[in-house]
Design a protein around this nucleic acid. Structure first.
Lengths: 205, 205
DNA sequence: ATGCTGCTGTGATTTCTGTCACATTTTGAG
DNA sequence: CTCAAAATGTGACAGAAATCACAGCAGCAT
């Protein structure tokens, strides 16, 4: 695949370096791309597929914050990579996914030499920051029913379909809730004619 | 006050421009420095005092995310300022506060010309991003009692005292909870010998 | 001192969410 | 087909938090 089309703003010199030094990696749907606490050795650019970014706590709880799609980069891997720290988040491939891994050691150099790179980094920070602000909104101000509605709508938007193919348990995990609660709220939504429930699939109306 | 000591990493040329173009502003404790939805005309560097950064929702609810202290800058004002957008947050002076306002129009120029400036911007994004991640942690994984304990400890840390001088109502507002809940939880903490309650003041033990 | 206002304590009640305990249904492997 | 595993439906209950309703108290202005 021709990744350059996804990053048209990159300068020729930058593209050259990336082509020379970066490594492309493939993941299957469901693969864990990065674990919390893992040492970060590279910054990831998404080429294809979709990645879910989670925050985890000690007790095994996880919480879906946002998605990364082709043309986007993992802000956390930039943040941690520059300082050679460990990851604050967990990343999971939602679909089969292609990623371009840029070694940590290059970051400083790229930042200094290529304006288009540091603009990209700044832009990445910005959009992830805004996304985090909206995450805070949802959990600080909204009940589970509203958060569930948002979850379904966002999920449908991302895939472009009007169906969401996940189990109630997976939704509960993403929202850090429990399966029974999600099942009941979904039933209520069905009664309000907002969705139609099927096995492993929810149809939005 | 000599603000340069707070930003020792700034280059001479950068300092010169800031001294020429930036405006210093003073706020009294309690003043609203920036409102949600307000048009952003400058980026703020904190010189003295302390600022609380809130996220608000439509129904008048507010939620304290983090503090800004001398030597720090408002990441949101950078993000919005560069794109000339409106504020996503509300900022309130907790103490009498001095701020250096750098006009939006300068941002692009400073980013390009002064390495120490864009490093400062990147560093600011990074630390606010980390802070937001920890905010998500607290509201996603912790109950009100734990969040209250964290609130009090952080508050005491920031002022350097072992007392926190606020009313229960103010705490409830900051945590987007209600006064009664906070009062009851504080009573429980007092019974566990973690705090001693006084009027408008909580003593940590 | 008097009275007002704002802060704090507390019970009663309700809503939301999480947990436990099962029943039922669907799917896929053998 | 048969059986086990996974997904879903539901009732009962517990705990957290919000809300309502007051009562008591401290500090301040007059």
């Amino acid at each position: 695949m021709n990744w350059k089309q996804l990053f048209p703003q990159f300068e020729p010199g930058l593209i050259e370096i990336i082509e020379k030094e970066a490594v492309q990696r493939s993941y299957n749907a469901g693969d864990i791309i990065m674990r919390t606490g893992q040492y970060i050795k590279s910054t990831a650019l998404v080429l294809e597929g979709r990645i879910k970014i989670y925050r985890e706590n000690q007790d095994g709880g996880e919480f879906l914050m946002y998605y990364l799609e082709p043309g986007q980069a993992c802000a956390v891997s930039m943040i941690c990579a520059i300082q050679s720290e460990t990851s604050e988040i967990m990343a999971k491939a939602e679909e089969d996914t292609e990623v371009l891994m840029i070694p940590v050691q290059l970051m400083d150099d790229l930042m200094n030499k290529y304006k288009s790179w540091y603009q990209f980094v700044i832009q990445t920070y910005r959009s992830r920051f805004d996304e985090l602000l909206s995450v805070v909104d949802h959990i600080a101000f909204h009940n589970m029913d509203e958060r569930l509605e948002f979850y379904l709508k966002r999920s449908a938007d991302k895939t472009g379909k009007k169906t969401v193919e996940v189990s109630h348990q997976q939704i509960a995990d993403d929202l850090n809730s429990s399966r029974e609660v999600i099942s009941r709220l979904l039933k209520k939504m069905e009664q309000r004619n907002l969705v139609k429930l099927h096995r492993n699939m929810i149809e939005l109306i």
